[in-house]
Each structure stands twice: as C-alpha cells, then as structure tokens.
Simulated scan of single mutants.
Amino acid sequence: MSPEAAELESITTPDVVVALAGGDTITPVWKNQVGGLTFRLDNGRGTTRYVKWVAAENPHLDLAAEAERLSWAQRWIQVPHVLDFGSDDDGAWLVTSAVAGRSAVDPRWAADPKTAATAIGHGLRILHDALPVDDCPFDWSVDARLARARASLTDDAGLADRFSLDRYPGVTDPEARVASPPPVDRMVVCHGDACAPNTMLHDDGTFAAHVDLDNLGTADRWADLTVGAWSTEWNYGPGYEHVVYEAYGVEPDPERIAYYRLLWDLT
C-alpha cells in the first residue's frame, strides 16, 4: 500500500459526512496539504456526490468562497455543481455533483504526461476565454493575494519569514520584489489553483472539467499559466512545461513566469 493510500485509510470520517451520506458508500479520496478532506459518496445506482470538509479552526480553506465561485462559474464552464453547503462548530462542508473525467494526476494520466499537460493547457485556455471578466465579482490580483496571505499569518512574522529563497538566486527581499509586478498581459478570470490535480480529463485525453476553484478571480492570465505549467514538474517530472504553453497557444514569458512563481511561493 502506498503512503498516500495508507493515509486515506487512516482518516476518521466526520459525523456530518456520515449524516450527509445517508446510506451511500463513503470513500475518502483526498487529503490536501492544508488539512482539507474530500469524500466520494456512491448510492449504488449510478449517482455520485463529493463532500469536502474542513475543520473549523483551519485558516487556509474557505468552502463558502468555493461554493460562491462554483455557483457563479458553472454558467459558462464545466465545474462541479453545488448541492449543499453548511457549517457547525466542528467545521464546514461543501457537497457537489460529480464531473466527468479523471484528474490529471490519476495513474492513467501520470503514465501519459504529455497528454495530461496538453489538457491542462487547453483547459486553461477554455476557462480564460469563457469566463466574463467584467461580470466577475471575485479578485485574485497581486494586491488581493498579498492581503489575504498577510491576513492568514498567526504571529508577528512576515510572509518572507516562512519562505525559502533557495529557488530564487538574486532575490534578497521577496516581498519588495512581488510589490512590483510586470504589466498585465491579459486580464482574465483565473482558476486560482491551476495545479495539475485540478484538471479533469476524459478517457480520450481531452479536457473535461475544472475542480477546486476556491481562489477563482480576476488576474493576469500568467498567474494561472505559470502554476499550471510549473505543476507538471511536481507531478510528472521535468520536460512538460512547454507542452502546457503550446496547448494554451502562447510563448513562454520568462519575466512573468519568474514573477508569478515567486508570488505563488510567497502567498
């Protein structure tokens, strides 16, 4: 058994998830890096739902924000539909419909990273072209991201105090560096967490849907592009970043890539 599978098996299902499931079969499917849990609920008759749950004391995940963003975005793109949202003293939960496809980090696609990287690029282009910037009530700009990151600090340390400069030779003051972003190339509605696991693929390898949109908002498209391409290195190994850019239809922009990598790490 892999460490990831063992970790999922050890998860204690929150009481509210048991109640929401009714008689459905509950399967833990994801534990993210900041403690959020996702469960699949199967009723045995072909209907599947997903429940996200986060503990009340967790400052990193805002399921209310995700519910609001999904409800807005579903008018234009393929995303999970919100079925229920709520909270109690223990935590918050979000119930959504299933979407077609498998995650780009599913073993099927981890074994075919070029196809997966192509779908990530295509998927981002579809999202950026479809969502209306002028109608978007959500902000993922540099200023907004820095403000949220600073608000999440629980002590007197600055953002840079929880940050390693090892990957950024020549950068001595990261907060000062991100305070001077490059000019916006194209303002779009960004996914906000365009890492590979959040792109779903059909069995033929084409883009299917996006998930995990709790940070969706307006920003320069390079805020998404940089992270989507960079995440192929984390999930598949080196050599596939260019595939994302090619599939999206853009030439790599070294200045913006360097900037938005730094901003991602800092925030």
Score class of each variant (00 low, 15 high):
109 W>K: 10
109 W>G: 09
109 W>I: 11
110 A>C: 10
111 A>R: 14
111 A>Q: 11
111 A>F: 01
113 P>L: 07
114 K>M: 12
115 T>M: 06
116 A>N: 07
116 A>G: 11
117 A>Y: 04
117 A>R: 06
118 T>K: 10
118 T>W: 02
118 T>S: 11
118 T>C: 08
119 A>N: 04
119 A>V: 08
120 I>S: 00
120 I>W: 01
120 I>T: 06
121 G>M: 06
121 G>C: 10
121 G>L: 06
121 G>P: 10
122 H>V: 15
122 H>P: 00
122 H>Q: 12
124 L>W: 00
124 L>H: 01
124 L>G: 03
124 L>Y: 00
126 I>D: 05
126 I>N: 02
126 I>E: 11
127 L>M: 15
127 L>Q: 08
127 L>N: 00
128 H>F: 05
128 H>D: 02
128 H>P: 07
129 D>H: 11
129 D>F: 02
129 D>Y: 00
129 D>N: 13
129 D>C: 06
130 A>G: 10
131 L>M: 14
131 L>E: 04
131 L>S: 04
131 L>R: 05
132 P>S: 07
133 V>M: 03
133 V>A: 04
134 D>S: 13
134 D>M: 06
134 D>Q: 14
135 D>Y: 05
135 D>N: 13
135 D>C: 08
136 C>P: 09
136 C>Q: 09
136 C>N: 10
138 F>A: 05
139 D>A: 09
139 D>R: 10
139 D>C: 09
139 D>S: 08
141 S>Q: 08
141 S>N: 08
142 V>M: 07
143 D>I: 05
144 A>S: 14
144 A>Y: 05
145 R>L: 15
146 L>I: 15
146 L>Q: 05
146 L>T: 06
147 A>E: 14
147 A>K: 12
147 A>S: 13
148 R>E: 12
148 R>W: 03
148 R>H: 11
150 R>Q: 15
150 R>E: 14
150 R>K: 15
151 A>K: 11
151 A>D: 11
151 A>V: 03
151 A>R: 10
152 S>N: 11
152 S>G: 07
153 L>N: 11
153 L>K: 12
153 L>Q: 12
154 T>H: 10
154 T>I: 08
155 D>A: 09
155 D>S: 12
156 D>G: 07
156 D>I: 03
156 D>W: 01
156 D>C: 01
158 G>C: 03
158 G>H: 06
158 G>V: 01
158 G>F: 00
158 G>A: 12
